[in-house]
Amino acid sequence: MPLTTNRPRLLVLVGPTAVGKTKLSLEIAKTFDCEIISGDSMQVYRMMDIGTAKIPEREREGIAHHMIDIHDPDDAFSVAEFQARCGALIEEIGARGKLPFIVGGTGLYVESVCYGFEFTEGGSDEAFRQRQADYAARFGADALHAKLRETDPASAQRLHPNDQRRIIRALEVYHLTGRTLSEQLAAQSKQSPYDLCIIGLTMDRQMLYKRIEQRVDEMMEQGLVEEVRRLLARGYGSDLVSMQGLGYKEIVLYLQGKAELAEAVELLKRNTRRFAKRQLSWFRHMNDIHWVDMTQVENFSAPLSTIRDIIAGKFQLNLEYTSEQPN
């Protein structure tokens, strides 16, 4: 496949949860001979399959998937590690003559790779972190989130009140540098080190919410409660960052007797809808995205054909020579 520049090619597919990224990604990967890199910050964790909507091995159709099942749930994982690993993978995949293809919905993680963000966060202050954790333990997650909202409203809008680790880090960045995390992100270069093609999927909001609710119901049928129960039994506590992820913190409440099952499920649906809204807001502020509407989901071939044309045009490819022809 010819290069349009001397920079490595990188294909990216983003969009909110439940919009249809997984199914499309497989078809795109077959057409353009891709290897897929998960752009989801939760799919890195082993044993967390149902709640993260991880694609099973048997459904990957022989396409290589990376950045899945690389950490135990109690391991630390950061955007800086994600960026570094993806950089190495992109180089390795390109050297094999394949097209690197990031698929996912964690906005900061994906954008950090696309534009080579520099993470100079000013070190750390363990005593400050502990004071904030103690404050949250005494006054609650919402009170800690309110502190961030006063200091850095943009980061507070992006972070869920239960995401204590990232809230504390955002407060720590301001404490150490005098500049908010959102200011530092806004100052990052938007020049990509890659020959970049980003596809964004969108959908009618009410239809997306309906699909989210259906996905949650499917997760429950697949055994989400048992998955969370097994994790707790293995000693992975509810205070871990991984266990604060969508689908896990809500079911933990049920298993700890703090909510009825129906309440936990409704809370999960509500939180997922809010998460999808934040995802769309993040992606709307990214540059260079070719948006494709997935509202007519029953007519799958139409958006797929549009996406194939966008990719072929961007990378100057002739679909006659790709591994699969459009329908």
Rank of each mutant, 00 (worst) to 15 (best):
D195I: 03
L201A: 06
S192R: 05
T177L: 03
H175T: 01
R165Y: 10
D195Y: 00
P161S: 04
N162E: 14
H160Y: 07
Y174W: 11
R205A: 14
R179E: 10
P161M: 06
S182K: 14
Q164N: 13
L181C: 11
L201C: 02
V173E: 01
N162S: 11
R165L: 04
L196V: 11
K210W: 13
S189I: 06
H175L: 12
L208H: 10
I168S: 08
M203V: 08
G200T: 05
G178H: 06
M203H: 04
L185N: 15
H160N: 11
T180W: 12
L196S: 09
I198E: 03
L201V: 11
R165A: 09
R205W: 06
R165T: 11
C197Y: 03
G178S: 05
E183Q: 04
Q164K: 12
A170T: 05
R166Y: 05
A170G: 03
E172R: 04
E183L: 09
H175C: 01
T180M: 10
K210I: 15
Y174K: 06
R205S: 14
Q191T: 12
R158Q: 09
S192Y: 08
P193E: 13
A187H: 07
E183I: 15
S189W: 09
R179L: 12
I198Q: 07
K210M: 15
H160C: 07
E172H: 08
K190I: 08
L176K: 12
L196C: 01
Q188G: 02
C197D: 00
Q206V: 14
S192L: 10
S192P: 01
R165Q: 02
A186C: 11
I198R: 02
C197A: 09
S189P: 10
C197P: 05
R179Y: 06
I198M: 13
L181I: 14
S189D: 05
Y194F: 13
Q206R: 08
R211V: 01
L201F: 02
R165G: 00
G178T: 01
T177M: 01
L208M: 03
L196Y: 12
Q206G: 15
Y209A: 03
H160F: 07
D195T: 08
E172Y: 04
T202R: 01
S192A: 06
T202F: 01
